[in-house]
């Protein structure tokens, strides 16, 4: 294992292993960064954009997903800068419309002063965080479910549909990962 390096998070020096992501480093240092599509057993995905942090280097500033950015010596990370908070609020406004039943999202929205959403609510409550799909693939290696379609047509589906009977009945581990709070009504409705 490589030697630890030091980066600063919100002005405080933090020691981290270079194989750690900025998110991991921040959390081990007790700095909270909200996430939705992140899971410790899964590869970084970067879909929800809740974990954005600001990196500064001199005058240059950049927002990155902390779940996929690896710790580097001398990195200057800000988790609550105005730029981060503005982006976070805008993401939360979308999430508030998409997953109104999630207590976690309601709490985060409240904390970030997002009180209402201008986005249309849809009947479809899946936020496509991909936790279930990736768990089925990366952890269980069963590949019962997958993404189909693209863009706004993207969905989670059993492929083929009869996989539900064969394999899922005895597993259902992915269900506990669903962050929307309405499981299972959000899932498995799409047909290929």
């Amino acid at each position: 294992m490589a030697d630890n390096i030091t980066l600063t998070i919100d002005g405080h020096p933090v020691s981290a292993d270079p194989s750690q992501t900025v998110l991991d480093a921040a959390r081990s240092a007790g700095v909270a960064i909200p996430t939705l599509c992140h899971h410790k057993d899964l590869l970084p995905y970067g879909g929800c954009r809740l974990c954005l942090v600001e990196l500064r280097q001199g005058k240059r500033s950049q927002l990155v997903a902390s779940c996929g950015y690896y710790a580097k010596a001398g990195l200057e990370v800000h988790t609550r800068s105005p730029r981060v908070l503005r982006a976070r609020k805008l993401v939360l406004e979308v999430l508030l419309a998409l997953m109104p039943y999630s207590e976690e999202i309601r709490r985060l929205a409240h904390e970030n002063e997002v009180t209402e959403t201008r986005y249309q609510r849809t009947m479809h409550y899946c936020v496509l965080c991909g936790l279930c799909v990736r768990y089925c693939d990366e952890v269980k290696h069963t590949n019962c479910i997958g993404f189909v379609g693209r863009g706004v047509e993207r969905n989670v589906a059993w492929v083929p549909p009869d996989r539900y009977d064969q394999t899922c009945r005895t597993c259902f581990e992915c269900m506990s990962l669903c962050p929307t709070g309405v499981f299972p009504s959000n899932f498995g409705l799409a047909e290929v």
Partner: peptide, 18 residues
């Protein structure tokens, strides 16, 4: 290749029709 990944590709690109 796992079947869901084949379906993902087949439903992602416009050139394909199911």
């Amino acid at each position: 290749v796992p079947l869901p990944q084949v379906y993902q590709v087949a439903t992602f690109y416009k050139a394909f029709s199911l």
